[in-house]
Design a binder for these strands. Structure first.
Lengths: 337, 337
DNA sequence: CTGTTAGCGCTTTCAA
DNA sequence: TTGAAAGCGCTAACAG
């Protein structure tokens, strides 16, 4: 390339990296640019990495995030943000092996990634943050005492928002369905802290609004929701809640099944609001499910942005970011009648 | 490192790469190994890449696979296989931008990945295979005329298997629910060829087994399944099918809703079998859904294995691999009564 | 059997 | 304003 343009490698390097602070004659610069264009020349990425000690890449280690329904969204959003900054994501999935964490990080360090994202499937509170010298951002999890960089959903505001939606609609007697400890959950999921957070915030918000709120924590899945809704709904109508807050969309689905079984109309007899906005799940229920959407896309995006900033040595203002959930009002909620 | 052990870099390189074909004195070798151990020495990956022209990594470009419910599974499985061979996955998500393909591949080539996996969300037939000089394997898609390396689900055998399951149970009148053209589908999904493949195979298998088979292609989602099942089930019982094959688990879910609405017991009055084994979806329905599981994990695994083989220049016997689906018998199917 | 040497393709200091 | 030269850390001919 240098030979082809009849200049030195130095000149080429300067021009192509925009480092020509008036040091290169316009004429020379022009010739270099033209030659590069004509040859379709592009700097050799590996060589450049070796020299500059930066690979323009960010490593992502996931605890089966890649295989969870939400994980893909976070990963894709993070990858997109990385790409837009000329970086790329290297992924290592722990596929539920607790032990692999150190090895995965080590491998990523060997490959000289510029920063690291550690992502979990459920929203978890980490007792020990992954050990590394690299800039690290926690995605969908956060560390106990550290002021580690982290990005996670604002479950508190989400649950409050759900209650407020119901209260604004005029509901005075509501119930929260689902949550609690799930013996069937994978070990990874056990550390999930969304359950108690959402419950406490929901109950507190209900108290504040003067709304009567029951809780039936029978699990996280469709049939748990079915059972919970059955227990809560199958009572005389004057004691029956008119609004149901399901801790997940799956639980909401079960609640819908239960309502149908009991001959209750949704949202006529009972309003149901879910949480998560899992895939197109909420779009597909009958009626379409109102839900509190987890900000997975934005979480992935922010995590990558933080990783990029940290790698570049920029100062980061907000080190722990609780991102707001979004209320998606569809057709499963309405004023009580 | 070489200095520390008092030997030449050559000796170190040979020993650490296992290339010491009797060329290194056992004594020297031992000293090198000990020193490496003591120093926690590891070869510099980037430098090695520069020298050896191989980065031990495989590039993956996805058309929003990373953000689809199944995509994560394939990606994670591929990543795991790559890791086990000391490779790593670099991912570029096209996030539904058709145009980005060439750019994504180009970026991966610049980063000197050893091979490429091109993965799609739905099972697609590619008219033009992505252009690259690198070894390329198509994941969840295949090319029209080429003998390109590809891995995809055996939808034909899957649909046959579903019918055979129903027929073996004794059903003589069945219906297929869902599929057809979906105007609401994303452009990416439009190219999905699973629909016609499954339908034709199902119908042909029914004919072969002497089973009467109707088809109601009203779409791919829960409420489409609801509508399709309603139209098929809401007839006099002597004309009503006793077995339903839903083209996706979502459609099956809708069919269950319809059955419940009509007061029909599943599987007593009507058996329902789904397709895909989406997430824990099938586990969560009431009753648990019998379904034909797509081999996503194995697909990701095989794709990575093929990419690895191709990169290493090994000869690959089966260039197009249709991987078998697995029948998961749960509780939504039973003999007719 | 072992070590010297010459690069891989780039960036950057330093001298011209 | 430009170019020569020295590496980044490793591998692999090729001598010794």
């Amino acid at each position: 390339m240098a030979a082809e343009a009849g200049v030195s490698p130095t000149a080429v390097s300067f021009v192509l990296n925009g480092r020509d602070g008036g040091n290169i004659a316009p004429e020379t610069k022009k010739r270099i640019l033209e030659t590069a264009e004509r040859l379709g020349y592009e700097p050799h990425h590996v060589a450049r990495s070796l020299r500059s000690q930066t690979t323009r890449s960010i490593g992502m280690v996931t605890d089966e995030v890649a295989s969870s329904p939400f994980g893909g969204r976070m990963l894709a959003a993070a990858a997109e943000r990385a790409e837009s900054a000329g970086h790329i994501m290297l992924v290592m999935d722990l596929h539920s092996r607790f032990d692999g964490e150190a090895a995965a990080i080590h491998e990523l360090e060997r490959r000289q990634v510029d920063s690291l994202i550690y992502a979990t499937m459920g929203f978890r509170l980490l007792t020990a943050k992954p050990a590394t010298q690299l800039p690290l951002v926690l995605l969908n999890c956060t560390a106990q005492q550290d002021d580690e960089l982290s990005v996670f959903p604002d479950d508190v505001a989400g649950a409050q928002g759900a209650l407020n939606h119901l209260a604004d609609l005029g509901h005075r007697r509501v119930a929260m369905l689902g949550g609690g400890w799930d013996p069937l959950a994978s070990p990874m999921e056990q550390g999930n802290i969304s359950g108690p957070i959402r419950r406490d915030a929901f109950v507190a918000a209900a108290k504040e609004r003067g709304v009567e709120a029951g809780v039936s924590e029978l699990g996280w899945r469709i049939n748990d929701g079915y059972r919970a809704a059955m227990s809560v709904l199958d009572v005389p109508s004057e004691r029956r809640p008119t609004g149901l807050f399901a801790i997940t969309d799956r639980v909401a689905m079960g609640a819908m099944l239960a309502a149908a079984r009991l001959g209750l109309d949704v949202p006529g007899d009972v309003s149901i609001i879910g949480f998560d906005d899992e895939d197109w799940f909420a779009d597909c229920t009958v009626p379409p499910l109102t839900t509190m959407a987890l900000p997975h896309l934005r979480m992935g995006d922010e995590a990558a942005a933080m990783a990029l900033d940290a790698a570049a040595g920029r100062t980061i203002t907000e080190r722990r970011r609780a991102l707001p959930c979004e209320l998606l009002v569809r057709e499963s909620t309405a004023p009580p009648r």
